[in-house]
């Protein structure tokens, strides 16, 4: 297998001789190290060529909503979708499961279909074929791609049918006011005030953005106003990393009150707690 890919790579990629050699060398090294660490791979993949049968990965081992959202994010990133599209898919997933019993449908089918729906809504339509390949590969990492046979067509049908099911449960309402635009707006506003002289700001805001995305793993994302979520993510990151105390005095006036009028301390704490609770949803791996 290694030789074959190497050959193909050199046909498609090589432009200059030195580049070709580099690629070859790199590939070679990679292969060596791969076989060292994973001696089973070759035989495994040869077996799979006949009938794909992959070992259980983390997704198939624990079919939680958390893992399904993780799956949405992983597939979405692999498909090169915009963050907003992926987040919309997560929202559709939560909205769907608000109405439906946990165990009635296969979560990963629902997850794939929400990605498909979100890509249509956000004008970023992905090809079903790509979605199927990416979804399948994410669930069965070492398996060969699905061949254009019964399994493939069933998969395709199930995504299309599931999409129709979801859209009806969403009552055809595919709009969601994401916190992202508020978040970016707030960051732009507070950045020069808080961190003009410190190098820390990038880390703080990056962390806040991570909180925001991680919060999509929790269905609590549906409960709060997008403005409040955006503030809570920033506040949490500021709390984690600390902020020069001479700049803000929480006793006098919390910094966020200049940005959002209707956010009181209790609500803010509730949202922050909800964000932190998201991390408890993560299944513990042995």
């Amino acid at each position: 297998m290694g030789k074959k890919t190497q050959k193909m790579k050199s046909i498609t990629k090589s432009k200059t001789k030195s580049h070709k050699q580099k690629v070859k060398a790199h590939k070679k090294n990679k292969n060596i190290s791969k076989t060292k660490h994973r001696p089973k791979l070759r035989s495994e993949s040869q077996d799979k060529f006949q009938k794909p049968k992959a070992p259980l990965n983390e997704y198939l081992a624990i079919r939680s909503n958390y893992n399904a959202i993780q799956f949405i994010f992983e597939c979405g990133i692999k498909l090169g979708l915009k963050h907003i599209t992926i987040c919309s898919a997560a929202v559709y997933f939560h909205r769907f499961y608000k109405h439906v019993d946990e165990n009635s449908y296969d979560k990963y089918s629902i997850a794939s279909a929400t990605l498909y729906l979100a890509s249509k809504v956000q004008d970023e339509t992905i090809r079903l074929r790509d979605l199927i390949n990416v979804s399948y590969h994410t669930l069965h990492r070492d398996a060969a791609p699905l061949r254009l046979a019964e399994d493939y067509w069933n998969f395709r049908d199930s995504i299309v049918n599931t999409e129709m099911l979801i859209i009806r449960y969403l009552q055809f309402d595919t709009t969601f006011n994401h916190p992202h635009s508020y978040f970016l707006h707030y960051v732009q506003t507070i950045r020069p005030v808080f961190y003009s002289k410190h190098g820390k700001d990038v880390i703080v805001f990056k962390k806040a953005y991570d909180f925001l995305h991680d919060f999509y793993h929790s269905s609590a994302i549906l409960q709060y106003k997008p403005q409040h979520i955006a503030i809570a993510c920033l506040e949490l990151a500021i709390k984690v990393y600390g902020i020069p105390s001479q700049i803000i005095d929480y006793e006098k006036q919390p910094w966020y009150q200049a940005l959002v009028e209707d956010l009181d301390k209790v609500t803010l704490w509730n949202v922050m707690t909800a964000i932190m609770d998201t991390y408890d949803l993560e299944p513990t791996t042995n």
């Binding site: 249509k120 339509t125 395709r156 299309v160 129709m164 055809f172």
Partner: peptide, 19 residues
């Protein structure tokens, strides 16, 4: 084009009308 699922044009129309 039912093979592609719910038509994107209809999805767009519904979203706009809901707005």
């Amino acid at each position: 084009n039912e093979k592609e699922g719910f038509p994107i044009t209809a999805l767009r129309e519904i979203r706009i009308l809901q707005l």
